[in-house]
Design a protein around this nucleic acid. Structure first.
Lengths: 350, 350
DNA sequence: GTGAAAGCGCTAACAG
DNA sequence: CTGTTAGCGCTTTCAC
């Protein structure tokens, strides 16, 4: 560590000192740092040793200034999506630092009110983001997308984009995930399976439903009307949907598959109220693996989305788009990441 | 907007163009931007007009590079604190951008394992944060604090620091908040009040308990042993605590005050299971105003902490500390922000 | 393969 | 009150 002579306070090690120490030029250090061109192996080793020894860390501000490639990215979200937010921010932060971008966060109080839309429009032009990342359910709001398109701000959706939309997006394959989870449920011996779906018309909700149907058909199991309900992704709607399902007919399902964790949590509460402890008398599974999944009891068997990775990826895509690095053809506009089935206590064998 | 002649793509407006446009020097623009010194009103107006007209936005990278005052700040958290995380990051992001700092996020998988502590220690020295922000419950972990102290990394705790600790902190007055909430409950006509406290020994848990006791004493109400239970801030422990309280004696409390929202949610579930709908037959209140508070039904009456503000403040304090801007005397090492009582549906008059 | 020069956009320090 | 002169730490040209 270097110390400034006057104050004695720590001064950050710069590339210059590393160069001096390794007896090379700054450029060579920079090349090693960026794994660029070819640097002779022994030179590289010498530089890396110096970096290690001096405890050098690059100054991101300097880098992005010199590189000229930095841009300011806005993460826009809406209250209802708070469950993702922490993860999204974490991922976006990681992704933007790696590339030296400036990250901003904006919340849109109410996605449906024109008032708020105008506000967003103003803020957007005032701050002048180079690009914008939309967190669900904003990423499914046609109004917001249209607004962005009219302003001409490039954006990336963290969500399954509807096929009709030209926007870039990063998501998991909801249909495949729901199908995989349904298969997992069936593999546990269940045959009487109920489903709580999300709002009709929302791409992600529709896909999850399709995946469920596909797996049921594949297994030759019936999708009973009385064992199907629609919710709006809230805890409350999960309670109501479960009540409808569990009090419908004479026979009850042995498991309820809810399209998100909040509704699964609501279903569990209803089950208890009806004297059906989970998972002893009824299994419940969720989707998303948000915080509720582990903060309730029993903890939810659910589908995990790699939210942080998705956000990091979104940042990278956005940067490419803004800087024109991405050629019109090469990188796919829609990135699909892998999901994971997380087995916890709310689902048991039968 | 300026366009580069070759590509036709937008090029960011710089301070230079603003200066040209307003017919002043860059310095004057800079002074207007930073509200520094005195600039003649009409000059200022001219500059501001130019900024507006050109749609100028400062380049944070350049600013922090030139200012030399930037530092890299790590936000360190632990799984259990995820409920805050989104808010913390939001606030920290805002605070750090305003001052041009670099923000990093690190998670500590398990705060109690030595293994993980070593890992943190390594990462800390490797990345070389200039300072660190600790999110609860990490901010109450003596081990982590000791580690940080031994490495010599300045830190700010988002939490009530124990009086014995020298660390800087930003928090709300937990005792006062719990007392205010208890008074609010009493004002609704309740006299049979139960309390679910957090882990004994944890500063915040102890303070909340003290606040509750103080308000009860003040109102001349008894704190019954059977109506008191301890939890560990999890949903599960809230269920158990509520079960203990509600099945204890012949008379039941009319309200349960849980020390956090998760436990309150657990208490509500237990209440339903025991045939006591909330809030008709039992009121429940929480603390923190995290996401669960509004994602369950009925929504929780709770105490709100201004988490984002706290984080922003923490960033500012940390920057001061790192840069030595703060004189040993002047700014208080412990900042206390205002809380707020949020009235929702889970508490009703009696 | 490596180095020297020039500057990214901004703000400190001093002049005037 | 305002302008001039230097850089901040890094990367981009170009040379060699």
């Amino acid at each position: 560590m270097a110390f400034s002579p006057d104050t004695g306070r720590r001064t950050r090690v710069t590339i210059r000192e590393v160069a001096l120490h390794a007896d090379v030029s700054q450029m060579t250090v920079s090349r090693v740092l960026n794994k660029r061109d070819s640097v002779r192996p022994d030179t590289r080793d010498r530089v890396e040793a110096a970096i290690q020894e001096l405890g050098y860390r690059p100054n991101l501000a300097a880098r992005s200034l010199a590189g000229g490639a930095s841009c300011s990215i806005g993460v826009i979200y809406h209250n209802a999506s708070d469950s993702y937010l922490g993860e999204v921010l974490r991922g976006a932060l990681t992704g933007s630092h790696a590339q030296g971008h400036q990250l901003f966060v904006e919340s849109l109080p109410d996605a449906d009110k024109d008032h708020s839309l105008h506000e967003l429009s103003e803020r957007l032009t005032r701050i002048g983001f180079d690009g914008v990342i939309l967190v669900p359910p904003l990423s499914e709001s046609e109004k917001v997308l249209d607004l962005l398109a009219s302003i001409g701000v490039p954006c990336v959706l963290i969500a399954p984009a509807s096929a009709a939309r030209p926007e870039r997006s990063v998501a998991i394959d909801d249909a495949a995930a729901a199908q995989a989870m349904t298969q997992h449920i069936i593999a546990q011996g269940h045959t009487r399976i109920a489903f709580i779906r999300g709002p009709a018309g929302q791409v992600s909700a529709d896909s999850r439903w399709e995946g469920f149907e596909a797996a049921m058909a594949e297994a030759g199991l019936p999708v009973r009307k009385g064992w199907t309900a629609e919710g709006d992704y809230t805890y409350r709607s999960g309670m109501l949907a479960a009540e409808k399902i569990l009090t419908a007919g004479k026979t009850r399902p042995t498991v309820i598959f809810a399209s998100n964790d909040d509704m699964a949590a609501g279903a569990i509460t209803t089950a208890y109220r009806l004297g059906l402890p989970v998972p002893d008398n009824l299994s419940v599974v969720g989707y998303d693996d948000t915080r509720v999944a582990t903060s309730i009891w029993p903890q939810l068997t659910t589908v995990r989305q790699p939210i942080a990775d998705m956000a990091a990826r979104a940042v990278a895509m956005l940067a490419d788009a803004v800087q024109g690095t991405a050629q019109e053809s090469e990188p796919p506009a829609r990135v699909v990441l892998d999901f994971e089935i997380i087995q916890r206590e709310s689902l048991c064998r039968i």
